[in-house]
């Protein structure tokens, strides 16, 4: 009897270990949505990329902290000086216009996602995808409708922004951005929502079975541009 008890406890423990291992493994494989490789080299490269990303994030946090300190110093130095205060206000206004500050306001969120239609049934697979030109056209229409700030998947559009095709992704501000594209625009929502008018560009995209979604919201936050804008060649004309 005692022997049987011991056997059952041991077998239970072993089953526990085995199912635990299998479940954890399944979860890990599912979570890391890439081809499993047991190649030492590839894993090393992957780990290195992650390490650099972490380093970058840390540095960026430091930068943000430094910027905050600078802001505080500025506030201190412009106290009791109306001329400087006015200049500060001007700088803030300028930053807002070129997209160097986070902004909040009413607007719309347009989501463009690749068609869910089976690609093998389509005559032209290219029609089922969202292209850089589609994003560009939507952005253009939004700007025409008076959008004041626009971001695509949290990439803020600034005067130096470009939207180019990069194979299966598109590049915005030099950063890789993949479908679905979430385009946030701040402006008068009713006006921006005219994007979905009959005959508008969204209608054309819908006709190509591309996933289109337009939401009007009272409060949207658009992040600031994280890069640096430098002008080397443009000089102030006299």
């Amino acid at each position: 009897m005692k022997n049987k008890k011991a056997i059952s406890i041991v077998l239970g423990l072993m089953c526990f270990a085995l199912t635990l291992g299998i479940c954890v493994q399944l979860k890990t494989v599912k979570g890391s949505n890439s081809v499993i490789s047991q190649n030492y080299e590839e894993n090393n490269l992957k780990a290195e990329v992650l390490r650099y990303k972490e380093k970058y994030d840390n540095k960026y946090k430091e930068l943000e902290k430094a910027e905050k300190e600078l802001e505080e110093e500025r506030q201190k130095s412009i106290e009791n000086n109306s001329y400087l205060e006015q200049k500060e206000e001007e700088i803030k206004q300028g930053n807002k216009i070129i997209g160097m500050t986070e902004v909040t306001g009413a607007g719309v969120i347009v989501t463009l996602s690749d068609s869910k239609k089976d690609a093998s049934t389509a005559l032209n697979v290219s029609e089922l995808l969202v292209h850089d030109a589609d994003v560009l056209s939507v952005i253009n229409e939004l700007k025409n409708a008076g959008a004041e700030a626009i971001s695509i998947n949290d990439q803020r559009l600034v005067p130096t922004s470009s939207i180019v095709c990069g194979g299966n992704i598109i590049e915005i501000n030099g950063e890789k951005v993949g479908a679905p594209f979430e385009i946030k625009a701040i402006g008068l929502p009713e006006q921006l929502a005219a994007l979905s008018r009959p005959g508008g560009y969204l209608e054309i995209l819908k006709g190509a079975t591309v996933g289109v979604d337009l939401k009007k919201l009272n409060s949207i936050t658009i992040p600031k541009y994280t890069g640096v804008i430098t002008y080397k060649y443009a000089q102030n004309s006299k």
Partner: peptide, 11 residues
Amino acid sequence: IGCVLGAILGM
């Protein structure tokens, strides 16, 4: 019991 516990903990 071992299997069920393992699965729950693993998830």
